[in-house]
């Protein structure tokens, strides 16, 4: 019994990317006479995009699970990656060091944002707007407005290797899995997710916990930034609170991942959701959908999914209500007969 239930859960998880691939394969063959994944380059692109989406979604999940949306994550990603890259280049170090420095800067920005949150105690979205305005300025000033350009820089090759990207994403998935299932942080996350008030009253230090969540989010989002810049070779230093678009675009993966994760684990769910959405977007671009149209289609499906999420318990509730009424009628009839 237990085994068949586990098999069902595995099938449920695997079904998302497999079905998406099948649908997109069919559509691409039908309309463009192309395969979704046909060459080694396609595989490389899918791996890279899945990695970026998954790691960004992991970063968002630390706060979003508890109802906090950090609008400064995009700015932290930009600042950490650009500063890490510039430092590694200035010291003549390899791509691995770029990753280490970027994570360190992300860690720092995350801690500072978390400390600002527990000190100022303003709503997270509002705090995010203010912090993003501040964080965006730093890489702009440091790089003189040029951002980061890795084109032709030696020693950065490792970052573009598929095995390295897979390794980073797998390490992140395992790390998030361990953090959420076998540590105090995971225990506290579940408690705060239920009720922050009850969690606090039962002795959980919600202030320290919030700082930890912000810190991890900052560090992780910079890994996504490095994976991104390793392929595109440049990252511009944008101002005017425009940095957050790359992060909000990955919110779907986080929400879908939490849903898939109900049958397995959120870390597995997010990775599966990232792969699913990457295949979907890749298929759309093969069908010559422009980036904005691709984004519109994705967001429309996301809205549909949010509506489904918000109402999926209603059918079960209705069934339970009908069963209760039926039971009451039966009992009434029994009493009348007696």
């Amino acid at each position: 019994m237990k085994k068949s239930s586990k098999l069902k859960d595995i099938l449920f998880t695997v079904a998302f990317p497999v079905l998406t691939w099948l649908v997109m394969e069919l559509l691409c063959l039908l309309f463009k006479n192309k395969h979704v994944i046909a060459t080694a380059l396609d595989i490389k692109t899918v791996i890279r995009n899945t990695g970026i989406t998954a790691v960004t979604a992991y970063a968002m999940s630390f706060n979003l699970k508890e109802g906090r949306f950090d609008l400064s994550l995009g700015a932290q990603r930009m600042a950490g990656t650009i500063l890490g890259g510039l430092l590694a280049m200035a010291l003549g170090l390899s791509g691995l060091w770029l990753l280490v420095f970027a994570v360190a800067f992300g860690f720092l920005f995350g801690v500072l944002t978390g400390l600002a949150f527990i000190s100022l105690r303003v709503p997270p979205m509002v705090l995010g707007v203010g912090m993003a305005l501040i964080w965006e300025v730093i890489p702009y000033l440091v790089s003189g407005g040029k951002g980061l350009n890795l084109f032709g820089v030696s020693g950065m090759g490792i970052l573009t290797e598929s095995w390295f990207q897979i390794l980073v994403v797998v390490i992140m998935a395992v790390l998030v899995y361990i953090l959420m299932n076998y540590t105090r942080l995971g225990y506290e996350t579940k408690a705060v997710q239920g009720s922050q008030l009850i969690a606090r009253n039962s002795g959980i230090n919600i202030f320290r916990h919030a700082v930890e969540c912000y810190t991890l989010a900052g560090a992780l989002v910079c890994i996504a930034g490095v994976l991104d810049v390793s392929f595109s070779t440049q990252m511009s230093a944008g101002l005017g609170n425009t940095s957050n678009g790359v992060v909000t675009a990955n919110m779907f993966a986080m929400i879908l991942g939490s849903y898939i994760g109900e049958k397995s684990d959120s870390s597995v769910g997010i990775l599966t959701a990232a792969l699913t959405l990457t295949i979907f977007k890749y298929g759309l671009s093969l069908m010559e959908f422009s980036d904005p149209v691709n984004s519109v289609v994705n967001m429309l499906i996301f809205i549909g999914f949010l509506v489904f999420q918000a109402n999926r318990h209603k059918a079960a509730l209705n069934r339970a209500r009908k069963a209760r009424i039926e039971l009451a009628k039966q009992r009434k009839a029994e009493l009348a007969a007696a």
Binding site: A116, L120, R121, V122, V126, L127, V129, G130, M131, A132, L133, I134, E136, V137, Y140, L141, G145, L239, G240
Partner: peptide, 16 residues
């Protein structure tokens, strides 16, 4: 560029 940072700080200070 600095003006943006000042706006951010002023925004957070006033909210608080």
């Amino acid at each position: 560029t600095i003006i943006q940072a000042i706006r951010g700080v002023a925004f957070l200070a006033l909210v608080t």
